[in-house]
Amino acid sequence: MYVRLFSRLLPALAVAAGLAVAPTHAGEPAPDARAALERFVDGLETFSADFTQTVRDETGYVLQESDGVMHLGLPNRLYWEVTDPFPQTIVSDGADLWTFDPDLAQATVRPLGDAFDATPIAAITQADRLDEHFRMDVWPVDDASAMRLVLIPRNQQADFTHLELDLTPDSDLTRMAFRDIFGQQTEIRFHATERNAGVDESRFTFDPPSGTDIYRP
C-alpha cells in the first residue's frame, strides 16, 4: 500500500532500538517545542535537505541504510530521491504520487487524496491542522541539542503509531523518526538543510523515462 511506503520514507518519516524514554508528561507539549515547530512552519514555502535513513525491525536489527535528497513544497508537493544503495524516486505534484524504481524501469502512480493526511509529512505541510491530526507530547533529548516533539496520530488508519520531530533552538528540523504499525522503526536525519531556497518547480513533476512500465492500482 502506498501510504505505508510513503510513511516509511517520510518521515516526513524511528524509535531507536530499545528506546525507553518516558514522556515528560501526558498533557500538553512544552510551549517551547510547540513554538519551535510553529516557527519552523511559519512562512515556509520550501524545505530542502540531504538525508540519511535507517530502517530497523522490531528487535532493532538494521534492515537498511540509505542516503538521498529531498525537496518539499508546501502544501503537498514532494521530491524524494534515494541515491544509495538502491535508487528510488518519489514525486508528488499535489494531486498524484509517483514511485519510480529505475533498476526495474517501473513506476506506480496513485491519487494523493486524503490518505496524505495520515502520513508523517502532514505534520509539516498541514501545520494549520496539527491539532486535528495529532495529539502532542514532548520527550527529552539526551544531549539537549534539540527539542523533541512527539505526535500521536488521531487517525486510526494511520500507518504509524507515533512521530518524533527534533527541532533545534533556532527551529531547524534535524530529525524525523517513527514506528509503523508493524513495529518497524525508521529514523531520518537531515543535514545541509535549506529553507525557502527556490526549488525548481520541475522537481515536483514526474515524466516517466521512455520504456518505463506504469502501474495505476
Score class of each variant (00 low, 15 high):
W139K: 04
F134R: 07
P153K: 03
W80H: 13
G43P: 03
A146C: 06
Q53W: 10
F182E: 15
M136F: 01
P23S: 04
V141A: 06
E45F: 09
R77D: 03
T99R: 11
V3D: 09
A33M: 01
A16K: 13
E164Q: 12
I188V: 15
D117Q: 05
F47K: 02
S202F: 03
D128W: 13
D143L: 05
A144F: 09
L104G: 09
T119M: 03
E164T: 07
V82N: 06
R110E: 15
S66H: 02
G113N: 05
A158C: 12
V138T: 15
L19D: 04
L5D: 15
P120F: 12
P120K: 02
F182K: 14
M1Q: 11
R34I: 09
T52I: 12
P208E: 00
F40P: 02
Y215W: 15
D103I: 11
D142K: 14
A16M: 08
Q156V: 15
W139P: 00
A177L: 11
F86T: 14
R216E: 10
F204V: 01
A144S: 07
T174F: 02
D131A: 13
A115K: 09
M1I: 14
E28N: 01
D142R: 14
L165F: 03
A36K: 02
M176R: 03
A35Q: 13
P23N: 01
T168N: 03
Q185Y: 05
R34E: 06
L130R: 12
V91E: 11
R56N: 11
S92Q: 06
L44M: 11
F160S: 03
I124K: 00
G27R: 10
S7C: 04
A14N: 10
P31G: 09
D101W: 11
V138G: 08
P153T: 05
H71L: 01
P102H: 01
T212Y: 14
D101Q: 08
A26F: 08
E187I: 13
H71R: 08
F116N: 01
E194N: 12
E65Y: 03
I121G: 05
L5E: 15
F100G: 05
F51I: 06
G183K: 07
D114Q: 12
I90T: 08
Y2L: 12
T24G: 01
L10T: 10
D142I: 12
L104D: 15
T168K: 02
D159P: 10
V150Q: 00
